[in-house]
């Protein structure tokens, strides 16, 4: 993405005021651009940055059911990091995030490369791979919940085929529930990764491929050695998007496991909601929200910085 625009400073920044007869209209014209952006910018300032500060402030109080405004220091953070449930959420996020990103990337890349082999019906396949992205997690979660439910879903289906001892009850087990989140999330997002990579593949210079082919490189070698390295920036983009999706994942958990069994499949997002709105621990909820923000910032800011500084050509 380019932020550097061809320079064009229209007449709105006149060095001198317009001559007689201009008055208010001219000065309004001059600042129209700013005026037009102002409402949005003000809204963002208040509703994004102001609210971040607000939440930050509240996280340093001992607010419980209602926000109170007496600062008590980092108490909430101390208590947050003593909570067993928070550790479960963090650990789940690491497991979920790692698997979700890794598998989505792998499937997305494989599908993109395979689809790039002059496949008949490519359009239809692409449409099928990508449609989950158009659906709400709440909708697809309903279907996944049913499929993963041991007594009516896949387990029952396979047992019905005669494999009486077949077990697939991850969703009801404490230590495996989080993996069902991975299944559903990968299902939902891998098509998107495929689309990203397919678009990038189509942008690679055909001449390079021809040259490599003439040099005698095999197709897998061409992809592995030339094509994929040349679209490295897309890995970065895909990673960042998936990572920030992982941190923000909320709907999926609610729809699929509700954070259960118990709180075994809690993620920070559900933890925050639970603390803030159900358990009257507003300060702790705010502290956890800020932890999420810090994580996203740590991922996004370096990425945006490099993109905006024109460092996109690696």
């Amino acid at each position: 993405m380019t932020l550097q625009n061809p320079p064009f400073q229209p007449a709105e920044e006149k060095a001198r005021p317009a001559p007689a007869g201009s008055g208010f209209r001219a000065s309004a014209q001059r600042h129209l651009s700013k005026l037009v952006v102002a409402p949005s910018f003000a809204a963002i300032l208040v509703f994004v940055y102001g609210f971040i500060l607000w939440t930050l402030y509240v996280s340093f109080t001992n607010s419980r059911m209602l926000p109170v405004y007496d600062l008590v220091g980092a108490d909430a953070y101390v208590r947050l990091w003593k909570l067993e449930r928070w550790y479960v959420a963090i650990e789940n996020l690491l497991i979920f995030g790692g698997l979700f990103i890794g598998i989505s990337l792998a499937i997305g890349i494989v599908l993109a490369v395979l689809l790039d082999q002059r496949i008949r019906g490519e359009g239809a396949l692409r449409t099928i791979y990508l449609y989950p992205m158009a659906l709400s997690f709440i909708v697809t979660g309903t279907a996944w919940k049913w499929i993963l439910n041991p007594s009516i879903g896949v387990q029952e289906f396979v047992r019905g085929l005669g494999f009486e001892t077949f077990t697939f009850d991850w969703i009801v087990q404490q230590d495996t529930a989080v993996y069902t989140l991975v299944i559903a999330a990968v299902w939902q997002s891998s098509g998107f990764v495929m689309a990203l990579f397919l678009a990038a593949l189509r942008g690679v210079d055909q001449e390079i491929i021809k040259a490599a082919y003439l040099d005698g490189a095999s197709l897998p070698r061409i992809y592995w050695g030339i094509v994929l390295p040349s679209i490295r920036p897309v890995f970065m983009s895909a990673f960042v998007i998936l990572a920030h999706l992982a941190v923000k994942s909320y709907d999926l958990v609610v729809a699929l496991t509700g954070g259960g069994p118990g709180y075994a499949s809690d993620l920070p997002a559900t933890f925050m909601y639970e603390m803030t709105f159900r358990r009257n621990q507003i300060a702790i909820g705010s502290a956890s929200a800020l932890m999420m923000l810090a994580t996203v910032v740590a991922i996004i800011v370096p990425y945006l910085y490099s993109e905006l500084k024109g460092g996109k050509r690696v």
Binding site: F8, Q9, P10, A11, E13, K14, A15, R16, P17, A18, P19, S22, A26, Q29
Partner: peptide
């Protein structure tokens, strides 16, 4: 043309200073 501001000096068309005049 009036598409860029004039940092210093002046431009006249038919003797009329047009520095601040809209394009």
């Amino acid at each position: 043309a009036g598409l860029e501001t004039i940092s210093a000096g002046e431009i006249r068309i038919d003797q009329r200073v047009i520095n601040g005049v809209h394009p």
